Amino acid sequence: MTTFLTDADVRSAFTWADAIAALRTAHAAPPDESRFPPRGMARGEGLWLRTLSGVPADGAPMGAKLIAASLRHRRASYLIPLFDQETTELLALLDGHSITGFRTAATSALAADLLAQEGPLRVGVIGSGFEARMHVRALAAIRPLVSVTVFSPNPASRTRFTGQLSDLDVRLETADSAPAAVEGADVVLCAARSRDERPTLRQAPPGATVISVGSTLPEQRELGVEVIERASSIVADVPDEVAHDTGDLLAAKEAGVDFAGKLVALADVVAGRAPGRPAHDPDAVVVYKSVGSAAQDLAVAAMCVRRAAELSLGTELPVTLSPVAK
């Protein structure tokens, strides 16, 4: 039978520790475009349908994430089907809404643990929405946090953000500007869309690790050209897409910034095939740039399905797909 997990089921089954462990395993394998091809994007007038698909090398369930979005109505739906690699049986269907936020934040936490300087972290946050909150929780799962300072244009949103994280054992503060929020930060988190697509971060503090998750399309901007030029390395979950499909890197290229020699795959850093932060430069700025990948979605989705079975969560559907001979 096929198990269906609602968004509530996913939230109940999810844990940061299990997700980060699953993502560490998933990213340890060398990048393989035959197993995880570039994402597909179908566009209509005010609409797009994005597909991320993959076949994990370790035999874990293969599958895809489908995202249907209406720009006019500012709404999106997420669906993740998982298939058994041996039988092609449809094992599970998941509402992928929270998976997206969870896997993005958990992957960023994995990257931050590898790239940030050792010790407790001071975090500066630009953005106060779901992604920003999930990232702070993910970071708190891998390192002690000294402080979290948030900026967003709406003061009420900043106050709501600190209230929603009040259960964490960390000093929560608000700032009236993005530069004030990130001043002295060890980790700078950029998780807010700029309304007019101008960069939200122009300068990074010396020694900071910058996490950029809010600009994944050519028309989106988040990091100023100055940040890309200043970075000693740019670690990317999907290097080719980050280099050619994100507004931040496209703008840097147009401005004449040569970043090709400092673009590194997160998988290579996780597996120890490439360094992340320079060992002898405490002022080095390192950027982690994320567009998201099927490897992340499938690793976290499969983890949630396993945990849901242990916790007796989810609904067994009365019908399922029957594999056919080919």
Rank of each mutant, 00 (worst) to 15 (best):
G129W: 02
L139E: 03
D84Q: 08
A112P: 04
A76K: 06
I67H: 01
L139R: 05
A141P: 06
A140P: 01
R133W: 01
D84E: 10
D95M: 10
R72Y: 15
S152G: 08
L79T: 11
S108G: 15
D113K: 12
R122V: 10
A132V: 09
L82A: 04
I142G: 11
T104Q: 04
R72P: 12
R72C: 06
H135D: 05
R133M: 11
F102P: 00
V150Q: 00
L121W: 11
S70N: 10
L114F: 13
D113T: 10
R122Q: 08
E86W: 11
A68H: 07
S70V: 11
E131G: 11
R137S: 06
V125W: 00
L90C: 10
Q117A: 14
H73L: 14
R74K: 13
R103S: 07
A112C: 10
G127H: 04
L82S: 02
V123L: 11
F130R: 06
S152E: 03
R122E: 13
F151S: 07
A132P: 01
H135V: 06
H135F: 02
R122P: 03
E118C: 09
R74A: 13
L114T: 02
L94D: 00
S147F: 00
V123N: 10
S147I: 03
F151W: 15
V148P: 00
L145W: 02
A141E: 12
A106R: 01
P120G: 13
E89C: 15
D113I: 06
T100E: 15
I142N: 15
P120D: 09
P153K: 04
F151E: 03
I67P: 00
L93Q: 05
A111H: 01
A111W: 01
L145E: 03
M134V: 13
E131I: 06
G119V: 09
P144R: 12
